[in-house]
Design a protein around this nucleic acid. Structure first.
Lengths: 111, 111
DNA sequence: TTGATATATTCCCATATCGGTATATAATAA
DNA sequence: TTATTATATACCGATATGGGAATATATCAA
């Protein structure tokens, strides 16, 4: 087991840029696999494989309509990541930036 | 090239739970490698390897003090992830939950 | 039925990853 | 100098990964 299985870990699922790109496209509404293939410019199996991963971690939901399969975003599955990263949010907000500026100023004055 | 190189991608860097754990520990202040080894209960090389990845993507900064090397968090490097995920934030907030409840209610009434 | 279309899955290959162990390097102590 | 401590890196082996191509499956059309 080289790392936590991609298929069971949302953090891993979004580690691949192509999978994030799919989520970004689905943010505008559901798309069929072929529509994704067109917009991504990838081969169909690559798209299906990425969708498979995203589905396994619950990031996308599926609706069948005849031969097409429509995928839609399930943004709620991103919440664990948001919750984790929110703990660090203060580190780049205005208050900390202001503190950094102040420290830098003091540092410059040392010369 | 199996995926985007871990060492140059913050999304990949936080995909591994052990690396996130290190960041969580460093959130309380800087720690030497040995202090991390103790708190993590891992072998020293595993810790150094994880720190190496975190350092390459700029998530940790280093300060040498004699034989010890102190690592500290650079939370700012997490901002790209925060920026990306913020676009989805609305999908699990109260307003959407309320909408979901409403839709579910309407759906129930269909029977 | 046969054929076309939409999607998923399987297979192979090159490479990346992780864990473990051993070793290298650098700083300090004796 | 030699020994010890702190950390980094190299190596090895098992497994995971992603790309590409081929194939399976399911649905619809003729």
């Amino acid at each position: 087991m080289a790392r936590a299985a991609t298929t069971t870990d949302v953090f891993n699922a979004i580690a691949e840029p192509g999978r994030r790109q799919i989520l970004d496209l689905l943010a505008n509404g559901e798309l069929s696999v072929n529509e994704l293939v067109e917009q991504l410019g990838l081969a169909q199996p690559q798209v299906s494989k990425r969708l498979h991963v995203l589905r396994e971690v619950g990031l996308v939901l599926v609706r069948d309509d005849g031969r097409q399969r429509y995928y839609r975003l399930n943004g709620r599955a991103l919440k664990p990541i948001h919750d984790w990263i929110r703990r660090y949010e203060q580190m780049w907000n205005d208050r900390f930036d202001a503190l950094d500026d102040l420290l830098e100023e003091l540092h410059d004055q040392e010369d």
